[in-house]
Design a protein around this nucleic acid. Structure first.
Length: 762
DNA sequence: CTAGGGTTAG
């Protein structure tokens, strides 16, 4: 058994070949036992013989006295055991049946196997099954179901093989169960073998089988195959639709999922609770509140509003679409709140942080999330791994180290730290809070590591300007046999980018495609292009962009422009800038990049041309905020802000810092931004000197203990001037300054930034 | 006997 699943395919193939009946049967005659017989029998027993309104206990005691019983006597009793999943009662009935000779009855015994399996007592079920006078397909299938439910899919497959050896034919249910075993093993390979078998016997239109196929392919990440299986179904039922709709949701295609839901309704199939909750979560993803509200009404109409799962899905919908108030009302109105509801609220607020452009509200969401986290204990809830990972994620986005540490302590106390997901979140939290040491400590202390843990740590080293360690870790990862994915390689390539290792980067890029069959994405090209630009190998940078399978994105062209500017190749920068403009960029930051580049080069005709374009395209103001958290209070700043505590003191000491920095060689660069007054062309852009992060950092220097690092979060990208200035400040004050901007992490120590100046944009 | 909420890496 231990050899599964590696040898499972081979074994199964061998088995199928050995079975003579499979070879002799012509493909048109199905080797499928008619399982309907048994269900027909069962319903006859129930309708014809079952005592009406029988109390379970009464029936049991009655059963003890009766010795001459028809086997139909046992069915309602066993049904009751099944509903109650009561092993002890089932055993009592079993004992009685041995006395009356009912153990000779295949149907009674099959049912008993079913009950035992449902109760999770697979050994007992197996024993009954082995003693059956004639073992049938239902029994085999029931055993398989038991194993799949007990998360032992290998055993289920093994039972399937045994069944074939014993000469039984699988029914469509048996195959569906076998496929679901493949699903829980995440083995498409084995699943394919079953699929081939299914096609061979031309039952690839069967509802149950295709439902199972659909979910197998979906869980293994093959949405197309999943939908193909779905489309082949001749008679689609709720489960088919639900499987297909969730498949879209699980594989990142909510638009198709929602469309399928509409199709489903137009075909008059009534959705069930799972369909509705899947659709609701997909409405969240496409942020379609309108559709979501309609589904909400539908839930009301179908009477699902008291259903906890549906309510939780609705919570997610409202929280993620930004209707916090709606969600709050729903949440407080729930008399029956589960931990999932709390998790929904916390994760929802965490998600809101990302969706909100306005940093100050983003910060409020973060604070609210952490408040919810500390409150749930009082409501008799204990956080689980989902709660912990969401809460840690909030801390990482807020760079809230203190809160993160507290949650870390709680995770240790409750034992959830041993959960891989929590451990990975912890690594991420320490990374984002600028503490690479504690991140690597957390990494080392993990007992098991997934690809995500490794990737987090590799990316962390890379972001903290430690490319060597990142690459060493990648080698270790390969040695332990954990398979990297596209994100891992983003980390690896960005490490190469930091270290300026062009040839190594190209080698890794090759390995990624050849050995790991990973398709390169934009982020990989960004690293490579940056590397070429860094060394002035611009032709190669352009070749690289040409080699891409997709059109260059706004982001990669912008980073090429930024690179050109950083490395003094303005001419080329201008060329790319024009190409970029023809793409009609979306981000304000892209326009600011170009505007500032032209301004810096004193090409004033271009500057006014840019202004005109920006006015036409209605490019808004940059929503620039920075915040710093000091002793549980969060202080936020906007550019040239004067409305905050100790404002005059902060400006005073900022001026001192600026002049000291100037003595060390700092040259202030004017950064142009959009001004408030847009009506006059002259005023459409203005310059910023007191960037929000400068204010936040100075505020931190004034209010945090000496030597303690300064952690600032910023809603937009850092500009060239500010990035340069903070480097000087880190030298002048001998402090570690961490700025988390909208794209990356900057850790300033001793006049150097961990981003290696690669993260500077405009 | 078929489908099964939410969490972590860029």
């Amino acid at each position: 058994m231990a050899s599964f699943p590696s040898t499972a395919s081979a074994a199964l193939t061998a088995t199928l070949k050995l079975q003579p009946q499979f070879r002799t049967h012509p493909p048109t005659s199905l080797p499928i036992e008619k399982s309907q017989n048994i269900s027909l029998q069962k319903s006859n027993y129930f309708t014809d013989f079952a005592p009406k309104n029988l109390d379970f206990r009464e029936a049991l005691s009655l059963a003890k006295e009766v010795t001459e019983v028809d086997s139909s006597f046992y069915f309602p009793l066993l049904q009751e055991c099944l509903d109650r999943t009561s092993f002890a009662d089932a055993q009592a009935i079993h004992g009685h049946a041995t006395k009356t000779g009912a153990q000779e009855d295949v149907f009674v015994m099959s049912f008993l196997v079913n009950v035992y399996a449902k109760c999770g007592r697979l050994e007992a079920a197996r024993k009954v099954f082995d003693n059956m006078p004639r073992r049938n397909v239902v029994g085999w299938t029931t055993l398989m179901v038991g194993y799949v439910q007990k998360m032992k899919p290998e055993n289920a497959i093994h039972v399937f093989q045994e069944m074939l050896y014993a000469g039984s034919y699988p029914s469509n249910y048996t195959l569906a169960i076998a496929l679901s075993a493949c699903t829980s093993m995440r083995s498409v390979k084995l699943g394919n073998q079953f699929h081939a078998f299914i096609i061979k016997y031309q039952i690839d239109f069967d509802t149950s089988i295709c439902n199972a196929l659909c979910s197998l392919y979906s869980k293994c990440g093959h949405l197309k195959l999943a939908l193909r299986a779905f489309r082949r179904i001749k008679e689609k039922n709720v489960i088919s639709w639900t499987a297909a709709i969730s498949a879209c949701g699980d594989n990142g295609d909510p638009t198709t999922g929602v469309r399928l839901f509409v199709d489903m309704l137009s075909e008059d199939t009534q959705p069930n609770e799972l369909t509705l909750s899947s659709v609701l979560s997909q409405c969240c993803e496409i942020l379609s509140l309108e559709l979501g509200t309609q589904v909400h009404s539908l839930c009301a109409k179908l009477g699902y509003l008291s259903n906890l799962r549906i309510r939780n899905s609705l919570l997610y919908l409202y929280v993620k679409c930004g209707c916090i108030d709606e969600a709050q009302i729903l949440f407080s109105g729930m008399d029956d709140v589960s931990l999932v509801s709390w998790n929904a609220m916390i994760a929802g607020h965490a998600q809101m942080m990302e969706l909100t452009k306005d940093n100050i509200s983003a910060c409020h969401y973060g604070i609210k999330a952490l408040k919810l986290f500390s409150k749930l204990h009082r409501f008799g809830m204990n956080p689980d791994l989902f709660t912990f990972s969401s809460a840690l994620c909030v801390c990482s986005r807020m760079a809230a180290l203190e809160q993160g540490e507290q949650i870390h302590a709680q995770a240790i106390k409750t034992g959830f730290l041993s959960e891989v997901v929590v451990g990975s979140s912890l690594i991420n939290m320490y990374n984002k809070c600028g503490s690479i040491e504690r991140a690597s400590k957390a990494f080392l202390e993990m007992s098991t590591r997934t690809m995500i843990s490794w990737t987090s740590m590799i990316t962390g080293f890379s972001q903290h300007g430690r490319p060597q360690q990142a690459l060493e870790l990648f080698e270790d990862m390969k040695l332990t046999g954990v398979r990297p994915n596209a994100v891992t390689f983003v980390g690896v390539l960005s490490a190469c980018r930091h270290a300026g290792m062009i040839s190594e980067a190209l080698t890794y890029f090759e390995i990624m495609q050849k050995d790991y069959k990973i398709m390169p994405v934009m982020d990989h090209y960004v690293c490579l292009v940056d590397l070429f630009v860094k060394y002035g190998r611009l032709d190669e940078a352009f070749d690289m962009i040409k080699k891409m399978d997709f059109e260059p994105s706004e982001y990669i062209l912008a980073s090429l422009v930024a690179g050109c500017r950083s490395h003094g190749n303005l001419e080329l920068g201008f060329q790319v800038a024009e190409q970029l403009l023809s793409l009609k960029p979306k981000d304000t930051e892209t326009y600011l990049l170009l505007l500032n580049m032209y301004h810096y080069a004193e090409r004033f005709e271009d500057v006014s041309r840019m202004r005109k374009i920006m006015k036409e395209e209605k490019i808004g103001k940059l929503n620039d905020w920075s915040w710093i958290s000091i002793k549980e209070t969060v202080y936020s700043f906007k550019p040239n802000d004067k409305e905050f505590p100790q404002s005059s003191l902060v400006y005073e000491s900022l001026e001192v810092l600026i002049s000291k920095a100037k003595n060390l060689g700092y040259e202030m660069l004017e950064t142009m931004e959009m001004s408030e007054e847009e009506e006059e062309e002259e005023k459409i852009s203005s310059t910023v000197i007191y960037h929000s992060e400068k204010l936040a950092i100075t505020f931190g220097l004034e209010n945090l203990p000496i030597f303690s690092p300064i952690r600032v979060v910023k809603s937009t990208l850092m500009c060239r001037d500010s990035h340069n200035f903070v480097k000087y400040v880190s030298t002048l004050t001998a402090r570690e300054i961490i700025v988390k901007d909208s794209k990356r992490l900057h850790k300033f120590v001793n006049g150097q930034c961990s981003c290696g100046d690669l993260g500077v944009f405009f």
